[in-house]
Amino acid sequence: MKKLFAMAATLMITSSSVAFAQDAVIVEVPQQTRDYVIANPSDPVVIDGDLTQGYVIPQDVELRPIPDSPQYGYVYVNGQPVIVSLENRKVIYLSK
């Protein structure tokens, strides 16, 4: 019985992570937009913790517009260019 319960729990965890992965939205940021952000650095801000795709940038952080991509803004966080959706302030691209 314990073995059956463990298998059921494993199945639930696995299926919930698959459902989460299906909900993730991958955004392809055009190279022209990335090039603009790299060529026009902003004053860096510091954000503690792990900055990952989907992270919501706090409201008190000023986002700079990207002229040819009005749906995106950017900021340099901890010295790294970060492109953000202006619709919801979620990180969609991190430079590596």
Results as ranks from 00 to 15, higher is better:
residue 14 T to W: 11
residue 66 I to S: 03
residue 39 A to Y: 08
residue 85 S to Q: 12
residue 87 E to Q: 03
residue 4 L to S: 06
residue 44 P to F: 14
residue 90 K to C: 15
residue 80 Q to T: 15
residue 89 R to V: 12
residue 46 V to Y: 07
residue 16 S to M: 14
residue 10 T to Q: 10
residue 3 K to V: 15
residue 62 E to Y: 02
residue 42 S to G: 03
residue 96 K to E: 07
residue 44 P to Q: 14
residue 49 G to K: 02
residue 85 S to D: 10
residue 69 S to T: 04
residue 93 Y to S: 01
residue 75 V to Q: 00
residue 15 S to L: 11
residue 84 V to N: 00
residue 49 G to C: 07
residue 24 A to I: 08
residue 30 P to I: 03
residue 81 P to I: 09
residue 70 P to Q: 06
residue 67 P to R: 00
residue 42 S to W: 02
residue 93 Y to C: 03
residue 88 N to F: 10
residue 42 S to D: 05
residue 62 E to A: 02
residue 58 P to Q: 01
residue 89 R to Q: 07
residue 88 N to P: 08
residue 5 F to M: 13
residue 46 V to R: 05
residue 57 I to D: 01
residue 26 I to F: 09
residue 60 D to W: 10
residue 4 L to E: 12
residue 8 A to P: 13
residue 47 I to M: 06
residue 61 V to D: 09
residue 26 I to Q: 04
residue 43 D to Q: 15
residue 11 L to Q: 07
residue 10 T to F: 15
residue 85 S to N: 09
residue 41 P to N: 11
residue 1 M to E: 01
residue 24 A to S: 02
residue 31 Q to I: 09
residue 51 L to R: 09
residue 43 D to W: 13
residue 55 Y to V: 14
residue 75 V to I: 02
residue 21 A to T: 10
residue 51 L to E: 07
residue 22 Q to E: 04
residue 28 E to M: 00
residue 38 I to N: 01
residue 53 Q to N: 14
residue 30 P to S: 01
residue 35 D to H: 03
residue 6 A to W: 03
residue 65 P to G: 01
residue 40 N to V: 11
residue 56 V to T: 10
residue 60 D to A: 09
residue 49 G to P: 06
residue 42 S to Y: 02
residue 49 G to I: 06
residue 3 K to Q: 15
residue 7 M to W: 10
residue 48 D to V: 09
residue 41 P to V: 12
residue 60 D to T: 14
residue 86 L to I: 05
residue 55 Y to W: 14
residue 74 Y to E: 09
residue 35 D to Q: 04
residue 54 G to C: 15
residue 87 E to V: 01
residue 22 Q to S: 02
residue 52 T to S: 12
residue 70 P to R: 05
residue 45 V to F: 11
residue 62 E to R: 01
residue 80 Q to F: 12
residue 92 I to C: 11
residue 10 T to D: 12
residue 92 I to F: 07
residue 58 P to F: 02
residue 17 S to G: 09
residue 77 V to E: 05
residue 63 L to H: 05
